[in-house]
C-alpha cells in the first residue's frame, strides 16, 4: 500500500502530546495475577500518527485505556499535553476525556437516538459548549458527510458510521485521538477511507492520533508503529510500510511463541 507523504519534522512537533513513564498495570492478585503492562515508557509526538500493535494479551488495549484515562495505572505517570492524569478523580478524568481526548471505537460508536450531526456534536453538547462551526464544517466536508447529517446511525452504512465517529472524535480539536481498532469491523474499501482520513487529519490539521490495530496494512498508514508483547514494548518502527510491519511481527513472533492474531 502506498504510503502518504511522511510529515516533515517541525519544531512544534517535538513536544509530546502523550507521555507515559514507567507504567505498571496488573490485574488480580497472588497466583492469578496478570501483569498487563510492565514498566512501559513511551511518548507520542504531537501531530503524529502512531499505531500500537501486538498480539492478543500483549497489553496494547490496556496501554491505550491507561493513556486515555479509561483505566488507572498501578504505578507510573501519564501526561496528556500539560496535564498529569494519574491520580485525577473520576470527575476530572471525565472532563479531560471530554475536552482533550477524542475516541474512535471498533464498533458501537454512535448513539442510535441521535442523528449523524448530533453525534458529531455530542462531546460539545455534553460539555454544554458550542462547537466551532467553521471547524465542524471543514471536518464534515473532509469526511464527505454533508448529505448524511440528518440520518440516524441505523440509516448509515458501517463505513459511514465510522466516518461519523471520526468526525465526532475530531470535533472538539482534542489534544489526542485514540482509535481502538477503528477498521476492525469494516470492509476493505471503508477501511481505506477511514485510514486515509486519519492520515489527512494528521497531515492537514496537525492532529495527534494513537491507533490500536492488529492489521499491518492499517498500521502502515501511521508514522510510527510501537510493538507490544507480554506487557512490554519490543519494537519501535518509524515510517512503516505494510511489509516492514509484517517483517517486524514475524521477527518477534519467532522470539515469543504466540497464539494467533487478535486484538
Amino acid at each position: 500500500m502506498p504510503l502518504a507523504n511522511p510529515p516533515a519534522p517541525q519544531l512544534t512537533r517535538t513536544r509530546a502530546a502523550v507521555d507515559a513513564t514507567n507504567l505498571l498495570r496488573a490485574y488480580g492478585s497472588g497466583e492469578a495475577q496478570v501483569v498487563a503492562l510492565r514498566n512501559v515508557s513511551v511518548q507520542f509526538a504531537s501531530g503524529a500518527f502512531t499505531a500500537i500493535m501486538g498480539p492478543s494479551g500483549s497489553g496494547k488495549s490496556t496501554l491505550m485505556h491507561c493513556l486515555a484515562g479509561l483505566d488507572t495505572v498501578d504505578r507510573g505517570s501519564v501526561r496528556i499535553g500539560d496535564t498529569e492524569i494519574t491520580g485525577l478523580n473520576d470527575k476530572a478524568l471525565t472532563r479531560l476525556r471530554r475536552d482533550k481526548i477524542g475516541f474512535i471505537f471498533q464498533q458501537f460508536n454512535l448513539l442510535p437516538t441521535l442523528t449523524a450531526e448530533e453525534n458529531i456534536l455530542l462531546p460539545a453538547s455534553i460539555a454544554g459548549a458550542k462547537a466551532d462551526p467553521a471547524w465542524i464544517g471543514r471536518v464534515i466536508a473532509t469526511l464527505d458527510l454533508a448529505d448524511r447529517l440528518t440520518h440516524k446511525p441505523t440509516e448509515l452504512s458501517g463505513g459511514q458510521q465510522q466516518r461519523v465517529a471520526c468526525a465526532r472524535a475530531l470535533a472538539t480539536r482534542p489534544e489526542v485521538v485514540f482509535a481502538d481498532e477503528p477498521t476492525g469491523n469494516l470492509d476493505t474499501r471503508s477501511s481505506g477511507e477511514v485510514l486515509r482520513f486519519l492520515r489527512r487529519s494528521v497531515d492537514d490539521f496537525g492532529q495527534t492520533i494513537v491507533m490500536v490495530t492488529h492489521d499491518p496494512s492499517a498500521a502502515a498508514h501511521a508514522d510510527r508503529v510501537v510493538f507490544l508483547a507480554d506487557g512490554q514494548i519490543v519494537e519501535d518502527l518509524h515510517r512503516p510500510t505494510a511489509d516492514s510491519v509484517i517483517d517486524t511481527m514475524r521477527g518477534f513472533e519467532n522470539r515469543v511463541p504466540l497464539a494467533g492474531e487478535g486484538r
Binding site: 471525565t94 475536552d99 475516541f103 458501537f108 448513539l111 462531546p123 455534553i126
Partner: peptide, 16 residues
C-alpha cells in the same frame, strides 16, 4: 450498557 460506556468515555460525567 455500551451506549452509556461510550457516553462516559467521550466525557459524560456521572451526574449527567
Amino acid at each position: 450498557t455500551r451506549e452509556l460506556g461510550l457516553l462516559r468515555a467521550i466525557g459524560m460525567t456521572r451526574g449527567q
